[in-house]
Amino acid sequence: MRSNLLTRSRWLLATAVLFFTPGSGPAQSSASYCEPSAALKEELKQVERVSDEDLPFKLRRERQTLMLQELLKKYANDFHVQRRYQDERRGSVFVDTDALLAEYRAQMEKNPDDPGAVYRYARLLVGRRTKQAIEQFEKLGQRAPDFPWSHFELAQIYTYPNFRDAAKSQEHLKQWISKCPTAMVGFWLVPRIGDKEMMTEAAQRLRARLES
């Protein structure tokens, strides 16, 4: 049984590599890194809505994977589609984590100047080789100062018990907010920081976003 699961996992991984490896197209702008376009945001919502359908778990996941693969064809180099697809793959019951990590490392080595490729590899290191992930995110922040997601990830990591550093978490969260002030992602981190001024500003931004 275990052998069959591993075989299926590797087959799925090989299929993903063959058809959905990111290309080396033009880099996205800082603004487009923050949030997907309105059209893409709606299409990603359609993927999430499948979770609410009265379907067996396995079937829901398969439908979501297929929908994301179609989005990858439509938005081949889009950061947000690639990030969401990575979430889907690493959350799979059949995931071969070592093979997935090797695949994303190969993508990073092939496209070392692509912040998204470096980010996706470093993201998979969190929880396995977190110190190495921190090094990757720190270097990425220096090499690609307009890329905001390294700050978002570091703000999270520095709230984890084994890596807790309130000052660093606060600084990286401020960097994230300064680059992506209207992005909803990251609001949940603000209470963890415990900075009253930041909480007040976040509440004001959230209110403005909801009223717009």
Rank of each mutant, 00 (worst) to 15 (best):
L189M: 12
R8M: 13
L13C: 04
L55M: 06
A133C: 08
D146E: 15
Q86L: 14
K74F: 01
G194D: 08
L59W: 04
K196R: 05
R120N: 11
S30N: 09
K168F: 01
D78E: 15
A117D: 09
G23P: 11
D54M: 10
K74E: 14
Y33G: 10
G186F: 14
L124R: 04
A39L: 06
S30G: 13
W188M: 11
L66D: 14
A144Y: 08
A99T: 10
F187P: 02
G194F: 04
R123D: 12
Y33K: 00
M199H: 04
A76K: 12
R83L: 13
V95M: 01
A208Y: 08
F94K: 02
D114N: 15
A203H: 06
Q136M: 14
T21F: 02
R8I: 12
I134C: 06
W11V: 15
R129T: 01
S32Y: 01
R63N: 13
S30E: 13
A16C: 12
G25N: 10
E197M: 09
N4Y: 08
D113Q: 08
G141N: 09
Q28K: 02
R143Q: 14
K174A: 10
P148Q: 01
H172W: 06
A39M: 10
A39S: 06
R83E: 14
N77C: 05
G141E: 06
T97P: 00
K45E: 15
F57Q: 12
P26S: 05
P181Q: 02
M184D: 12
P161R: 02
H172S: 02
S37Q: 03
D87Y: 08
R90C: 01
A38F: 07
T182M: 10
R49P: 00
Y160H: 01
R205V: 11
L12F: 13
K196S: 07
Q46N: 07
L189K: 02
F137K: 00
A167N: 12
S92Y: 01
T65I: 08
H172N: 11
D165I: 15
K139M: 05
A208D: 15
L100E: 14
T65A: 03
P181H: 02
D54T: 11
S178T: 14
R105P: 12
E48N: 13
L140Y: 09
K73N: 13
S150R: 02
F57N: 06
D113C: 01
E109N: 12
R209F: 14
R83W: 07
A122W: 03
Q175W: 08
D195Q: 04
Q136W: 12
P115H: 03
L68P: 13
P36S: 01
K73E: 13
F19V: 05
V95F: 05
M199Q: 14
V190E: 11
L100C: 02
S29R: 10
L40E: 07
V17L: 01
Q170A: 10
V190L: 02
A99E: 11
V93I: 15
E171T: 14
L13N: 08
E88F: 05
E48W: 10
